[in-house]
Nucleic acid binder design. Structure first.
Length: 600
DNA sequence: TTAGGGTTAG
């Protein structure tokens, strides 16, 4: 940035070209007023007003120039705002604040901070507006901490709720939740924005349980709750799969007649979809009076997650027909993942190729990830590998992981080993990759390699994450670990498991013992599989819910091959729909088949 | 003139 001149140098802009704006015609050409300023959007309109202010001495430049700067900043004409600023004899704190805000919002952070420094040099004192703007111009933790100490030192502003809340947002958006919470706890008179800022901090950093805990406290303390609060709480519910809480929020919205704005509607649709209620999500979506690109993306992505690919593509067509929202890069993540999760390989390729040509959207690494998944699923492993090698991005762990998954599905040891070389470098402690590789070796009966991999993991201290499945029955979440016997109804659960095992045997079910990473006998492997957390949760679901009702589960890992096979059979034997949310997607088991068509 | 909000690849 140039040095900021604060001497008054009259400047009449060159606006020789006449521009006819209908808003201007009815106004007297000499009259400058705020109404007129508010209607300006184009630079030439601002220039005309600027000329009038300078030419007409009765129009009080001291009053109108700051307002002109403000309007220019609001219209993101920063260069011209700076030109006007330079003409001011004594810029006020308001003008400096406005310039700091403008540069921060337009991403020219350094200039924002520079303006604050310049303000101090001119001897002006910061006011309660200064620090929230200045914090927006801070790009790293140290800068923010510097502003924090300035706030503490400033007269009277140490307890200003705006500055304090800005600090909460700053710290949490820079990953320091501990500091954010310290500031939050010290806010004397917390309002709905300060509470929401802290909850948002937790949610953004995936500390969903903490976010919900704070929401409970907020209610106990009788704080006001508004749409923004609920959006964040719903986001936590969606990601935790906390359906009862999410449903309660929906009831709260209805009961308190809270306006379902676009953000809140999106969060609600997303909550239903991520909690496994895709029909409810779709129905709610249909009832919405307005849909933004976010709402469309949520329903398309939600349908994709549930393997409802055809329906997702129908929604995509509907989105385009409606003309209300333009598809963006995220829409295509949903569209491509719909094709992947439903096995529509050719359609997926078509959509990928149409992104740039028909929609002007450059595919990013996530779109390439979807393409690799799509090709991998179809068994086109060489082509998938070619994409990884030739795409315009350096492949990350997700991309290699996608390819490893494809190698597992199509038992390709050779490529899997090449992929693993990369994954060991990028994610040396991700146990899931080693487990997948072990399964690939096991599928080819390469037991030596399985053993080598196991000792490699042991030497590196890499432990397999224990499987954990939860099920919600009558508003209580029951959590099961592998081999768990701590549940109060454990005896009944294991009796039910015996019944399940007997009936599975009767339909010639053979446990997939190759997927067990233990150095034990076949019988012990069978037992281990039988006691996987998913099966324990299903057995509990069978004994604690009414016949023919759906059973809903959530897992911390991907579905294991043996549990997947067993769950398909159980859905048929016991005539139950079983809906499982695993780490990546939903599986709807019904009548012996799964919505994922055995690829996940 | 200030603080908080929705969707995204294994």
């Amino acid at each position: 940035m140039n040095n900021i001149a604060i001497n008054y140098r009259p400047h009449i802009p060159n606006s020789t070209k006449r521009y006819e704006n209908p808003n201007f015609r009815s106004q007297s050409p000499r009259l400058v007023n705020l109404q007129l300023l508010k209607k300006c959007t184009h630079l030439i309109e601002f220039k005309q007003i600027h000329t009038q202010i300078i030419k007409n001495p009765t129009d009080q430049p001291d009053y109108f120039l700051p307002k002109l700067v403000e309007s220019l900043v609001n219209s993101t004409h920063m260069d011209y705002a700076y030109q006007v600023f330079k003409q001011m004899l004594q810029p006020t704190t308001f003008v400096f604040n406005t310039m700091v805000r403008g540069y921060a919002l337009s991403g020219v952070y350094k200039d924002g901070i520079q303006f604050y420094i310049q303000m101090q040099l001119t001897g002006l004192e910061a006011d309660n507006f200064t620090y929230p703007f200045l914090l927006k111009a801070c790009t790293d933790l140290n800068q923010g901490k510097g502003v924090h100490s300035l706030i503490l030192k400033s007269r009277g502003l140490g307890s200003d709720v705006y500055s304090q809340t800005s600090l909460v947002s700053f710290y949490s958006s820079h990953g320091d939740l501990e500091y954010a919470r310290k500031v939050f706890d010290r806010i004397q008179e917390k309002n709905v924005v300060s509470w929401t800022a802290m909850i948002t901090g937790y949610v953004k950093l995936k500390e969903y349980t903490e976010g919900l805990a704070l929401f409970y406290r907020m209610q106990i303390e009788g704080a006001e709750i508004n749409e923004s609060t609920l959006v964040n709480v719903l986001c936590a519910c969606a990601n935790l799969g906390a359906f009862e809480m999410g449903k309660w929020i929906h009831g709260y919205i209805d009961k308190n007649k809270i306006f379902l704005n676009s953000s809140l509607a999106t969060a609600l649709v997303d909550m239903y979809a991520k909690c496994g209620y895709i029909r409810k999500a779709s129905q709610l979506f249909d009832e919405l009076p307005q849909r933004s690109v976010y709402t469309w993306n949520t329903i398309i992505g939600g349908l994709a997650l549930h393997g409802c690919g055809v329906e997702a593509l129908e929604r995509f067509k509907e989105m385009q027909m409606s003309g209300g929202a333009r598809p963006d890069a995220i829409t295509f993540i949903g569209v491509l993942s719909a094709c992947t999760h439903s096995g529509m390989v050719d359609k997926g390729k078509e959509y990928f190729n149409s992104m740039l040509t028909d929609y002007g959207i450059e595919p990013n690494i996530k779109h390439y990830g979807c393409l690799v998944d799509l090709l991998g699923r179809a068994g086109q492993l060489d082509e998938a590998y070619q994409v990884v090698q030739n795409m315009p991005f350096k492949p990350n762990a997700v991309l290699w992981g996608t390819l490893l998954n494809a190698c597992n599905a199509h038992a390709n040891v050779e490529l899997a080993e090449t992929v693993m070389e990369q994954l060991v470098k990028l994610e040396p402690y991700n146990d899931g990759n080693y487990v997948l590789m072990s399964n690939i070796y096991a599928a080819k009966s390469q037991w030596d390699n399985v053993a080598n991999l196991r000792s490699f993991m042991k030497n590196k201290g890499i432990l397999k994450t224990p499987g954990c499945t939860s099920i919600e029955v009558d508003n209580v979440i029951h959590e099961f670990m592998v081999g768990d016997s701590t549940h109060p109804q454990s005896k009944d659960i294991y009796s039910m498991l015996d019944d399940v095992a007997r009936r599975l045997k009767a339909v010639n079910y053979l446990p997939k013992t190759t997927q067990v990473l233990l150095d034990v006998s076949e019988e012990e492997k069978r037992q281990a599989l039988c006691h996987h957390s998913e099966k324990l949760a299903i057995a509990f679901g069978l004994i604690s819910t009414k016949p023919k009702t759906s059973i809903r589960l959530m897992k911390n890992l991907r579905a294991c091959g043996d549990c997947h096979l067993a769950t398909k059979l159980i859905s048929k034997i016991y005539d139950r729909e079983i809906i499982v949310r695993d780490r990546n997607r939903f599986h709807h088991f019904k009548d012996g088949v799964c919505s994922c068509n055995d690829y996940w």
